[in-house]
Design a protein around this nucleic acid. Structure first.
Length: 291
RNA sequence: GCCGAGGUAGCUCAGUGGUAGAGCAGUAGACUGAAAAUCUAUGUGUCGGCAGUUCAAUUCUGCCCCUCGGCA
């Protein structure tokens, strides 16, 4: 089985610089596991390492689609597996903070087929969560038992899978046999330090021209497409739409980033296979033992 | 100094003669083709201080302290 090293952690923990150090040391390349860095033109706000800073290390899954292209977990999984299969000489470093994307690779999630059916989604979106929940009870009672009843997006997705794939959602969500042997390394950071770094980084992004980047994207794309829900862009969108002052928008970026980082921690906490380190040295030792 | 408004949770503020609540923040959690998305749970604090009225005061009265306006 192909060995891969995963470098994960909340936003601002220092994954990028650690992964560069390690990729150089172990003759590796980097596969981004970041659901927003896939978009071209979203650079400053996603804290993307631009091409000129790659230091000769090969990077994949960055700038692969345009902001108005549809993209999904299933595509991500498929593409990453193809990359790993194709590139056998270098050690893959899967680096990022999108827990679900990482899990789809590490655990080879069997992602339910079916959809996305935009027409159906739109139609379902007009119903209330109560109505959707009642629908789901009829077509897939097993899922209805465990789903968040108020989570419209999940209700819609479950119904969509049942209606378009011929399978029940509950029959389709499982793990397949793993196809990679993954060493998962988490970059440790205290809550306090993390929040401090996030606040500082948002200010730096503004200095680097996030406002201008967001403005250009806003001129080209609708503010309500999925990619534009990325932190940094969404809030500045509210400023451009005159719903917030600039100061309020920047404060909201910080706030939403902190919330996001907290959710990431919740996600990672439940995976006991993750080895938490606070330096590249510690990570190096783990990798040496792993290889 | 005078006039007015106000001092209640970390912040912004509601409210009541029977010792108090929302939003935000914080904290915890869920998560399988939108995941930086989406959803859930969670509020004891000298109700500015002292005294008075009252069976009972955060609520009414008096004095004091502080903050913010306006006038000097």
């Amino acid at each position: 089985m192909q060995k891969i090293v995963v470098i994960l952690g909340p936003t601002a923990a220092g994954k990028t610089s650690m992964s560069l150090t390690l990729a150089k040391k172990f003759n590796g390349y980097i596969i981004s596991a970041d659901s927003r860095q896939i978009y071209r033109g979203m650079d400053i706000g996603t804290d993307k390492l631009t091409r000129n800073k790659w230091q000769g290390i090969k990077h994949r899954m960055i700038d692969i689609v345009n902001p108005d292209d549809d993209y999904s977990l299933a595509q991500y999984q498929k593409t990453v597996f193809a990359i790993i299969n194709d590139q056998k000489k270098l050690l893959p470093f899967l680096v990022g903070g999108t827990g679900l994307y990482i899990q789809s690779i590490v655990d080879n999630l069997d992602i339910p087929k079916g959809g996305p059916d935009k027409v159906l989604r739109k139609e379902l979106n007009e119903k209330t969560v109560q109505e959707l929940f009642r629908m789901l009870i009829k077509i897939d009672p097993k899922t209805a038992q465990v789903i968040d009843e108020n989570n419209k997006r999940r209700l819609i997705r479950a119904i969509e899978v049942c209606k378009t794939s011929g399978f029940k959602y509950s029959d389709r969500t499982k793990k397949n046999k793993p196809v990679v042997n993954a060493l998962q390394i988490g970059v440790k950071i205290s809550r306090e330090e993390m929040y401090k770094k996030i606040n500082k980084r948002v200010d730096e992004m503004m200095e680097e021209g996030l406002l201008d980047e967001a403005k250009k994207l806003g001129e080209k794309y609708d503010w309500d497409i999925p990619s534009m829900s990325a932190i940094g862009y969404k809030q500045l969108g509210l400023y451009f739409k005159k719903e917030l002052s600039l100061d309020e928008a920047v404060e909201l970026i910080k706030n939403d980033s902190r919330h996001y980082a907290k959710r990431q921690m919740t996600w990672f906490k439940r995976d006991s296979r993750i080895n938490w380190v606070s330096s590249a040295n510690e990570a190096e030792k783990l990798i040496e033992r792993f290889l």
